[in-house]
Design a protein around this nucleic acid. Structure first.
Lengths: 275, 275
DNA sequence: TAGTGGTCTAGACCACCGT
DNA sequence: CGGTGGTCTAGACCACTAA
């Protein structure tokens, strides 16, 4: 924080701006925005440490406490992870703690004794006490239907990637995912690459395409299975399915994924906590 | 914070306790627990202010910053609301801000022009851009079925209150609620009293019975409407319904409500935000 | 104007981690 | 051991609210 901008802020406190224009934010919020810019620009990459609090304090000419408060907010938003004695690190989908942040489907009964993680099979994505294997049904590039374009803030007809995949729990088809991605950000994405990848999808997006999901908005509905869904999910036509429609965002609240998940909730449920 | 407990804490830093026993928490967490106890005991009631930071600092013989950090955590958990220049207040379901914290069902399209709040009719509970009227179908006292007893941490067969009610949006049946409450905490609750009450249910629980819901856990499933549900919700038998099963807790993580909501999601959806 | 929460500082000390 | 984040303090000043 140089002297000029500090003065600018002080001006904001006393001199009234003519328009309803920018109210001057507290110092620690300004610092937070600067750090956010560093994260967004890739100055510090996922898994890497950001500079220490004392160094940042020196760099921006503020006290350590102010930097601390800025980082507190980034940590609260899961953009950054503090580790005492080591430093503060850019959050990554690599870490187990944040790995299942977006996976809310859980088995109804969490077997106390079911310790052994699925042996042998390559678990695509798995949650607490849960082993899910993923099978990619389809991956093609096409022009965005209007409602997909709207959700992803694209122009209608722009290139998108459509992935369809089936998640199985213990061999039982459980979730049919339909994932739409903007073609421009996911150039080399193909069915082969998806098949070759073992691990969470969001980790692949992060490491292979530099797209980090940091926030998502979901809409849930109960729908009746149509014939196609019924067949792939091995349920009767008209059976109730939980539809989870998700729009994920990266830095700057840019939408970068539209996902529709059709879930069989006989033995699973969507978990949520309100506080 | 008297000298004794401060010393005790310092002891904890150096002397190792024999067992895996209580690790000594930082000062601000101890303060937080003390404040929590004050909230739980009703020393400060919903809507009332708690003592100022400076007074609490003097009372507990710590710095204002330490009290501040304790209150920060209570505010983050929505137990308390800060208001600059006025004080810090015990959260209440009276306030609009926290009123719809637990209501996640929203209309699919939020009409921009639909400003006029429903005139005349008594809106039971309403959310953003949404008017819902509540009709109590039933309110009786009975012995807790085993699975209800388990959810509410009661002994099987203990007295409970069962409320069944229908929520209508613009005259369309939308949610069928089945609410189980522990009989001991809700003595005088009756259908008449429910009918006489206009406003959020949780506000009634708070003001009439001194039970404040502060946290809830939900499990969502898609289910097929049985004959009874189909009739009251005016949908076909077997139609997909969104089942929201919620257990609400008061202070000390005590469960005090089990609620099953069967929702028609043709024109509504359950909204959630992940971050 | 007095009192409240909100910001910012500077400095001390602690707990934890890697070397 | 040195460096990192975590806690705690004391004090200054600001912004907001109500009387």
């Amino acid at each position: 924080m140089n002297e000029a901008s500090r003065t600018a802020r002080r001006d904001g406190d006393t001199a009234r701006p003519a328009e309803p224009g920018p109210t001057f934010a507290p110092l620690y919020r300004q610092i937070r925005e600067l750090l956010l810019r560093g994260l967004q620009s890739g100055e510090w990459k996922p898994g890497e440490p950001i500079p220490s609090e004392t160094e940042l304090a020196a760099r921006y000419r503020v006290s350590q406490g102010t930097v601390r408060k800025a980082i507190d907010e980034l940590a609260a938003a899961n953009l950054v992870v503090r580790r005492q004695g080591r430093g503060t690190f850019v959050a990554s989908h690599r870490e187990v703690r944040t790995q299942f942040r977006f996976l809310r489907l859980r088995p109804d009964e969490i077997e106390a004794g079911a310790a052994a993680q699925g042996a042998g099979g390559a678990p695509g994505e798995s949650g607490p006490g849960m082993v899910m294997t993923s099978r990619v049904l389809e991956c093609r590039r096409l022009r965005a239907p209007s409602e997909v374009a709207r959700a992803l803030s694209l122009r209608a007809g722009e290139a998108v990637v459509l992935i369809r995949r089936l998640l199985e729990a213990d061999g039982n088809p459980t979730v049919l995912d339909e994932i739409w991605l903007p073609g421009s950000r996911f150039r080399g994405l193909s069915a082969e690459r998806l098949d070759a990848w073992h691990g969470p999808l969001y980790l692949m997006f992060e490491t292979e395409f530099g797209v980090r999901m940091i926030r998502a908005v979901e809409r849930l509905k109960a729908v009746a299975a149509d014939r196609a869904h019924a067949r792939t999910l091995q349920v009767g036509e008209g059976a109730p399915l939980l539809l989870v429609e998700r729009v994920s965002h990266t830095y700057g609240d840019q939408p970068v994924e539209l996902r529709r998940g059709y879930c069989v909730t006989d033995r699973h449920h969507y978990y949520n906590e309100l506080s």
